[in-house]
Simulated scan of single mutants.
Amino acid sequence: MKAFVIDLSVCNGCYCCQIACKDEHVANDWTPYAKPQPDTGQFWIGITELVRGQVPKVKVSYIPKMCHHCDDAPCIEQCRSDAIYKREDGLVIIDPEKCTGCKLCADTCPHNAIFFNEGLNIAQKCTGCAHLLDNDDEWEVPRCVDQCPTEALKFGEEEDLKDFIKDAELLNPEAKTKSRLYYLHLPKKFVAGTLYNPLEKEVIIGASCILKDNESSETFNVQTDNFGDFWFRGLKDNRSFTLTMEKDGIVKTIDNICTDKDLSLGDIPMEIRQKAPKPSGFKGAVSYP
């Protein structure tokens, strides 16, 4: 059974997959796999740009989205004309010659991966480039996978991809459709900030920062870098945390940090008084007769 794996840690948002899909399907009739994709309005694989955090602590993630080729595909169940079927290799296809344009599949898909072609009055979506896989011995992967310059997109037998799949997640697991589209390194919440000394007007380097999950008591430890910055990544959604920062015996605490969104705490002051340097040549107490 075929599967897709997308590694978001190396996806740089180049849009090559989206462009390759357009190049393969716009103005090309691949019946019985698919009729031509419209010039605009449909992206059988499309890039979603996710901007997280607040200036200056901001992260951008690029998430390619497409048909999940589900094992329990609700679109198949809802299709009244038997136009949607699942192949033995796992790819889900909408037969354009059988589709009656009832739109039930598009309305039913929990992944929003089915589009409606008003001009042709048919539903359309990613085919996994089945027309290439079936009819051209040189093609072993869809066009989007072939054109990915960072190899963020992978396609193949599920058994061959098992080393990737074991660490992967589903984009929409609550749909319970047994998706065959797996993601590595989906964005998780982060908490970040900058620690500085207002007395010295300098950032604080090497401060210990401990973030404690108030529910599970799990702790995360980092140190401020050469810019005074700290980052806690990979945090769970909608959890309450307590942040404790310490440097040279001075402690500062911030309570009730909630990861309902990615959070930049901004510039955090912590007053640390520098020890006065000893006078030059000072060697300790001097005794006089």
Rank of each mutant, 00 (worst) to 15 (best):
A3E: 11
I6A: 11
S61E: 07
E169R: 13
A123T: 07
A192F: 01
R233Q: 11
F115R: 06
K86G: 10
Q223G: 00
D163T: 10
S217H: 10
Y15I: 05
P289V: 11
D23P: 00
F115V: 00
D146E: 14
D237T: 03
P142N: 04
C21N: 06
C16W: 11
E49Y: 00
M1W: 03
S61M: 07
Q42K: 12
E97I: 01
G206N: 07
D39C: 00
A83W: 09
A168Q: 06
C102F: 09
S217F: 10
Y183D: 02
T177R: 03
T108L: 09
A285Y: 10
M270P: 05
A27C: 01
K35Y: 14
K57E: 11
G101S: 03
R52C: 10
G13Y: 10
C79V: 02
T194I: 10
F164G: 01
H111N: 12
I47C: 11
P289A: 13
L170E: 15
G128A: 07
G46N: 12
I19Y: 08
L132V: 00
D95H: 06
F115P: 00
K57F: 15
S240N: 14
K57H: 15
K283N: 13
F4L: 12
D29Q: 02
L181W: 05
S9L: 06
R180Y: 01
S9C: 02
S264T: 02
P187D: 09
L50M: 08
Y62D: 05
R233P: 00
V222N: 07
Y182A: 04
H131E: 12
Y183M: 04
G90I: 03
E151R: 14
D89Q: 08
E88D: 15
D146L: 11
F155A: 02
A73P: 13
S264G: 15
A73R: 02
E118P: 01
G13H: 08
Y85E: 13
